[in-house]
Design a protein around this nucleic acid. Structure first.
Lengths: 201, 201
DNA sequence: ATCCTAGTTGACCGATCGGTAAAATGCAAG
DNA sequence: CTTGCATTTTACCGATCGGTCAACTAGGAT
């Protein structure tokens, strides 16, 4: 059992940084096997297809993300709007540290994969959609709390949450085009100015 | 000369929708040649490499975009902030019409390519960066005008322009993950709430 | 001691990848 | 009529793609 998990997780560990730094189509099974020190037949013992691997990679990234700095950022002990500041800060420092190690701004793997595969594979699109849905919920709950506390004026928290998530992804995209995480630092805080007003119908 | 241009532009015409609807790595030269009704050797007479083709495709998209609805949207005759409304509207209707024809939300090819290739190819990244730079300038000029006219309170027009562009790309990304251009309709107008204040130093 | 099964290996599949080179074609200028 | 050049065709290159298969190994259970 230990060996099983070890091999499977070595595959995922080899795949994660590659899919993050390049693209789904540009990373081959063979390269992953070489990096993990296994044979291709062994890979297909654990994963029926390349798509099953990327699903596993997506899930690992999502878990590590949800239990890592995102959990810290959306700490209920923090004042609601400060959680958003914290999240932007964390995203900035994360991208910055990746660039220091890797030499490149890699951006958000969920955004990267969304734009690459979502016209070609509805199962992957659904996976990514679910992750964005959870992210939106975090924003929305935070906004609901902020409105309840009177920190901000009432607004459409559902749509504003989606707008904030979109803005974050967009800033990361633009920063990637400049290969410069500092854009996150300059543009990130403006996320709190976004507002979708309640419709009166 | 006519035939030359015709073949070359038939290649580009075959390539454009494919790169837009799938991805750079997922579209092969052979498929493009078949669609254009030519042989591979003929392709390489006009384009030294696949990258030269995608550069030409990017340029064609950029031209058609700059001379099409973007030029309409940023019409100096319109009140400045209405130009931004117009742009959002145009993006929405464009994505919607593509979906009606193609069955899919294809998103922005510049955003798509940025996330796919910008860690792997600095020349392509520079091309895309230049296009985003021009888009940012349009936003900034519009904001400058709006501030001068007193339509909006003074702000950092350079950073706010970048924030608006990022937001637009982010909304398109999220809409693509939902395969639903209606998100552009719901979230788009909030672009005008984005503000980066002037720093007092 | 035997059987079963999870794991692993290495050879192999047809298809496709981006790209090349030489020969054939067509056309225009001299 | 011939030369020269741009264009096009055809055949081909080595490499890699995702995926399969049969044989082999190693333990644990009976």
């Amino acid at each position: 059992m230990n060996i099983v998990i070890d091999t499977r997780s070595r595959i995922i560990a080899a795949a994660k940084p590659r899919f993050h730094s390049r693209s789904y189509a540009n990373v081959g099974i063979q390269e992953i096997c070489e990096s993990a020190g296994i044979q291709k037949g062994s890979f297909y013992h654990f994963f029926p297809s390349k798509r099953d691997l990327i699903v596993a990679v997506i899930e690992e990234f999502a878990d590590e993300w949800a239990n890592g700095f995102v959990a810290e950022a959306f700490d209920p002990a923090l004042p609601p709007m400060e959680r958003i500041d914290y999240l932007i800060d964390a995203a900035y420092f994360w991208q910055k540290s990746i660039k220091q190690v890797h030499g490149r701004m890699l951006g958000c793997i969920f955004g990267n994969l969304t734009l690459e595969v979502s016209t070609q594979d509805d199962i992957l699109r659904a996976k990514l959609l679910a992750i964005f849905g959870r992210a939106k919920s975090r924003f929305m709950n935070t906004l609901d709390e902020a409105v309840a506390a009177g920190t901000i004026a009432p607004l459409d928290t559902s749509l504003t949450a989606e707008a904030m998530l979109a803005y974050l992804e967009g800033v990361i995209l633009l920063a990637k085009s400049q290969n410069d995480p500092e854009l996150l630092y300059r543009l990130g805080p403006a996320i709190k100015t976004l507002r979708v007003e309640l419709t009166l119908s």
